[in-house]
């Protein structure tokens, strides 16, 4: 099982998944935050944060997952009040209209939460809404093996 680790995010990838944990180049005063992409298809190096340039290549057996971190100013906001990364999604959590880009047949879900003092959104896309019951399994397998290090400096241990 391949293990990816960068920017305080560690993922052990289930078979068939590839991944990328990165931070974009700084533009002007912008402070880029870590983004993690995981997919069962090839992830192009120029894929946008929420899968632009990638989701069109999803086939009916594929999945795509994004873990996107927000700035520390978001901690404590109502949107990020949920504590902890969702580890087990249900097929019913996926909706054809919860997609950044509405592509026929696909299905998505998005969650906002705070994990170890770091605000995130998790966005997952299934290549086929009809197959959501089987496709949610590899997504959950990935989520089970995702770890986020605490935000506080000096606390480098990664907790699940």
């Amino acid at each position: 099982m391949v293990t990816l680790e960068a920017h305080g995010i560690r993922a052990r990838l289930p078979l068939g998944f590839e991944g990328r944990i990165f931070r974009r180049q700084t533009v002007h005063d912008e402070v880029p935050r870590p983004v993690a992409h995981f997919a069962t298809v090839a992830i192009p190096p120029d894929a946008s944060d929420f899968g632009g340039g990638l989701v069109t290549s999803l086939k009916s057996t594929d999945v795509f997952v994004v873990l996107f971190e927000y700035g520390p100013e978001s901690v404590g906001r109502a949107l990020f009040a949920t504590e902890g990364l969702p580890r087990r999604l249900a097929a019913d959590h996926f909706r054809p209209y919860t997609l950044r880009r509405g592509l026929g047949g696909q299905s998505g879900t998005q969650w906002f939460f705070t994990e170890n003092g770091r605000p995130f959104t998790l966005y997952a896309v299934l290549g086929s809404h009809a197959r959501r019951h089987s496709l949610v399994a590899p997504v959950n397998s990935l989520l089970h093996h995702l770890e986020v290090a605490p935000a506080a400096p000096g606390r480098s241990a990664i907790h699940r």
């Binding site: 990816l4 990838l13 590839e18 944990i21 086939k59």
Partner: peptide
């Protein structure tokens, strides 16, 4: 940045 590319178990 960290990258993992899957070349097995792909289509």
């Amino acid at each position: 940045d960290a990258v993992a590319v899957s070349v097995t178990h792909t289509a």
